[in-house]
Design a protein around this nucleic acid. Structure first.
Lengths: 355, 355
DNA sequence: AACTGACTCGTTAGCGTTAACGCGTCTGGA
DNA sequence: TCCAGACGCGTTAACGCTAACGAGTCAGTT
């Protein structure tokens, strides 16, 4: 067995598999480990000269300080946990991107965790993050009001956290929100303004944002004296598939709705697909409005009329709240930042058919 | 000056800010720390009875094992680093999602790092990940062939890694790829089949995938004896904005191209936008084909004709390669898996205008 | 009765790093 | 000349955990 790399090596030293340590380079330089440590921690108690020498020697030997040994004694991991249902949802990807921007700037790193929409998995991940001694958490929770237990654990562990787009009325947690009630109202009002009266709603799962958007839909309809048939509210999760299936059902109703407010964009896109397959034109025959559009350069969808809000900025805001909570470590106050949604009129909505 | 923690404490125990430790519950139960440890590590050297008692007591006291203390002695962090340009690109989000799926299943966690397309930042993150003693890395690198230095560092540190969609011909690294040459050919051939002859190409940045797609475009054109004007190849990065700007320039050429192959979907969407703004219809006047479509339920784009490949599955494949490399720790062999792209004909491409 | 071996549990030593303190050396001012 | 104080470095003792070995108990075997 040939050694693949003999390092700097003195004589035999088979393979330094474990990696170079502080005391390795301390010995090599005839210094104490402490002095070497000081060269890396930015301590004042070391002369500039030896500091440079140490850094140089460390580089040659390929030494990189062991983060965990350090954080064990420092009691800070410099790790922020991000706990979301799934990163492939563009919405969460953009929030996460905003979080990363701030967090990276402050010298922390991101541990990415998926709850996959499962409250129990979320709980397990929180537990894991406590074990990881994360310095803080950003959570897009799938817990409902009855299962706040995981958050209590976090508080016991003294780990600050900020919720994204989830609000628990009975308990104040720091959070960053969109006004989801307004989302529902804006979308619905737009359709009403275009002359629609038979407006259906494809809803999401029973989490706060979806519930509020639905409530906004209902409130807008009511405000205009428009009746809402129970069959017009349909759907059970945020998937494209659900949008497709729900729309197919809606198309069979009579009278057939002339417009649909879908609780998010994937739902809306699924709905559009169902309409077209069934031979209806969008928006000439049926108008569709989504919600939660993606921003930025990467994946714009130029077709769908939708209600937009600044995902990435919300991520930044959440991270800023968290950074402040960590820095001040008061742990006491909770802050809530709410963002206003905005209607983006594009090409999937139009005037109600005159028929 | 108040003592922040009086150890195990006898009477008052103000706030155990530091968190409960192994020996805390060892003392509480009259056991040794080792026995308690065994209850958590799944060791055989403990009776089922005491194990359950320990677990129960730990739960009551809110004890969670300190991951870093553990990994310090274990020499395994159970952390996989994912180093990508930016998670808000749906492409990387989906790859990451696939990675997470496998990695989570195997008991690892993901440290998410952004290179932001900057080779130097990427290098810094790799350095950080070495310090973190990550057990393995998945990298969508922005290094070019001349700057492989970071990878050498990884090899020295004995950290296995798998590259995603980057290939370094002069050096064999384990990697997962799409056949980008074929991507370019498929897209271009499709347009040629539709009768187009004046086909332009909006290209990406000078990284391997973009270069290969362009080469595929050229090869397809050449194979059909079609000339390529230098002005038809334009563009410098993967952004939507670049697609828009480049298309505007292409529209002013005479003769004006009747079709465009854009190196990825954001480019294509930007191009479509430019066409429409200038009063051209897509696909009646101009056909546009993208590449790298997103899959899954969340963000389908039902309009764009594009070349597709299985992002999420590629992520899974990369993670599986990495898991194997970690488990076997041979570190020797390198594996390369290539995925075939597939044309998705939708509504942004059509027959060449007869003029 | 003595021996073997399986089971449980404890003891000793670190893993690689930093906090806190201590000890020389050198400088400058009275 | 002497001493305060700054400066640069070393020593000791953790941080919370587990590997490796060792010791005690109890059953079954010879």
């Amino acid at each position: 067995m040939g050694e693949r790399k003999s390092g700097k090596s003195s004589e035999k030293k088979p393979v330094q598999k474990t990696g170079v340590t502080l005391s390795d380079i301390a010995k090599a330089m005839g210094l104490s480990a402490m002095t070497v440590s000081r060269a890396f921690t930015g301590s004042e108690q070391i002369s500039e000269k030896t500091k440079q020498e140490v850094l140089k020697c460390a580089k040659e030997l390929g030494y990189v300080p062991n983060r965990w040994a350090r954080s064990l004694v420092t009691r800070r991991s410099s790790i922020i946990g991000v706990l979301i249902p799934e990163i492939s949802h563009t919405y969460f990807a953009e929030v996460t991107c905003g979080v990363e921007e701030i967090v990276d700037k402050t010298g922390f790193d991101l541990l990415l965790c998926h709850s996959r929409g499962d409250a129990e998995k979320e709980r397990a991940e929180i537990h894991m993050l406590i074990g990881t001694r994360a310095d803080g958490l950003i959570i897009a929770s799938v817990q409902d009001s009855k299962t706040e237990r995981p958050f209590a654990e976090l508080e016991d562990a003294g780990i600050p956290f900020v919720l994204v787009d989830r609000f628990f009325p009975n308990r104040r947690f720091s959070s960053v929100l969109v006004d989801d009630l307004e989302v529902g109202e804006i979308a619905t009002n737009h359709l009403i303004d275009m002359g629609h009266r038979l407006i259906a709603h494809i809803q999401g799962p029973p989490v706060t944002p979806a519930v509020l958007r639905r409530r906004g839909y209902l409130s807008a309809m009511k405000a205009h004296g428009l009746p809402v048939d129970k069959e017009w509210m349909i759907g059970k999760d945020f998937s494209n598939q659900n949008g497709y299936v729900s729309m197919r059902k809606l198309l069979q109703l009579k009278p057939r709705p002339t417009a649909v407010f879908a609780a998010n964009d994937p739902l809306a896109i699924g709905a559009v697909r169902a309409c077209r397959e069934a031979g209806f034109r969008v928006p000439e025959d049926i108008s569709v409005v989504g919600a939660g559009s993606i921003e930025g350069d990467h994946n714009p969808n130029p077709f769908l009329t939708t209600v937009w809000w600044p995902n990435q900025e919300m991520g930044r805001a959440a991270a800023e709240l968290l950074m402040k909570a960590i820095a001040e470590s008061d742990g006491g106050e909770t802050h809530i930042r709410t963002f206003a949604p905005k209607l983006l009129v594009r090409h999937s909505s139009g005037p109600a058919p005159t028929k």
